[in-house]
């Protein structure tokens, strides 16, 4: 009588090979730790086992989220030849139009973003992206706030988290908290980023602009003007803010603008947002993109 086999004769070897590969990969990825960490951060079991190799996993999941956002359409790379029958067949098979996930379907990318943050809590971009989609397409600022709180716990010195939390606080009409969060963002800027980097400077200008807006809303024009001037210094190409400074220097007072307009201004885009001025024709067309809510504002100045 032959003894019964306990396992299929491939399960153990494949399992052992996978385990050894995982260990080797984790050990090969052991790099210097995060230089910014001065406060010991609690690490999960997964973080301790995988070490820095989890960054690679996190990046893979983030790319998957990007793929989902583009509805399964991957990047088109340069090819040495395209006249192969296989390429032509594959072009028909793979999804290939440029498309974005919209509406509630955006929720489909969230699992991958969640996996990214689980795997690599230092990936602040993943947290911000998650919060952005929760807040905007899914209209759940409460969930966005939760995500950002987690991001803050894992990355207490990253200005981007405070900045984004400030936007949510402002949208929820908690201006004092927004102000505190912007102060915190300013304190820890530039965090781990290069202070000369264009994006980092842009973020700084957004923080300062938002602080300026809060001052303007309270009627503190001088403080607001000083901050707007700093923004213009940082980014001379910012036409909207430059015009704003000019207008304020000429005595223009925007404190009477309605909340909706402040929300748009606080939103933090670089697109020039048209605000009706003294000389404007009230029947004029607003300059906007096709997604803009076409609400004509009458402002008595």
């Amino acid at each position: 009588m032959k003894p019964k086999r306990k396992y299929g004769d491939w399960v153990l070897p494949i399992g052992a090979a996978l385990l050894l590969w995982g260990v080797a990969f984790s050990m090969a990825c052991r790099l210097e730790g995060n230089r910014f960490v001065s406060v010991p951060i609690e690490q999960s079991f997964l973080e301790r086992v995988l070490g820095v190799s989890r960054v690679a996993f996190g990046q893979t999941f983030f790319e998957q989220a990007d793929l989902y956002f583009h509805q399964g359409v991957g990047y088109v790379r340069q090819q040495a030849f395209t006249n192969s029958v296989f390429i032509r067949a594959y072009e028909v098979i793979r999804p290939s139009a440029h498309a974005h996930t919209t509406g509630y379907t955006v929720s489909e990318i969230l699992p991958w973003l969640q996996f990214t943050t689980r795997m690599d809590p230092k990936n602040v971009t993943a947290y911000l992206t998650t919060a952005y989609w929760l807040r905007s397409a899914l209209r759940r600022p409460d969930l966005a706030e939760q995500v950002l709180l987690e991001a803050q716990r894992k990355n207490p010195y990253d200005y981007r988290v405070y900045n984004e939390r400030a936007r949510i606080a402002f949208q929820r009409r908690d201006d004092s908290r927004a102000a505190r969060l912007l102060d915190a963002a300013l304190k820890v800027w530039p965090s781990n980023e290069d202070p000369e980097d264009e994006q980092t400077l842009l973020d700084l200008s957004v923080i300062l602009s938002r602080q300026a807006i809060l001052y303007e809303m309270k009627g503190e024009r001088d403080a607001a003007l000083a901050l707007f001037r700093k923004v213009v210094e940082l980014r001379p190409g910012n036409v909207a803010v430059a015009r704003r400074v000019e207008a304020m220097e000429q005595g223009m007072d925007y404190s009477h603008l309605d909340r909706k307009t402040w929300d748009i201004l606080f939103g933090g885009t670089d697109k020039p947002v048209h605000v009706c001025g003294e000389g404007d024709d009230h029947d004029h067309d607003h300059d906007h993109d096709h997604n803009h809510d076409c609400e004509h504002h009458h402002h008595d100045i």
């Binding site: 299929g8 509630y104 929720s107 489909e108 969230l110 699992p111 969640q114 899914l138 759940r140 939760q146």
Partner: peptide, 28 residues
């Protein structure tokens, strides 16, 4: 059967994930 059980376990794990309490998230 081992593979079936593995797949069922994996799907069960995926099912049990709470994606911010949002329903209908199934593509992953």
């Amino acid at each position: 059967y081992v593979l079936l059980i593995l797949l069922v376990t994996l799907l069960f794990v995926l099912l049990s994930l709470n994606i911010f309490g949002l329903g209908g998230v199934v593509r992953y």
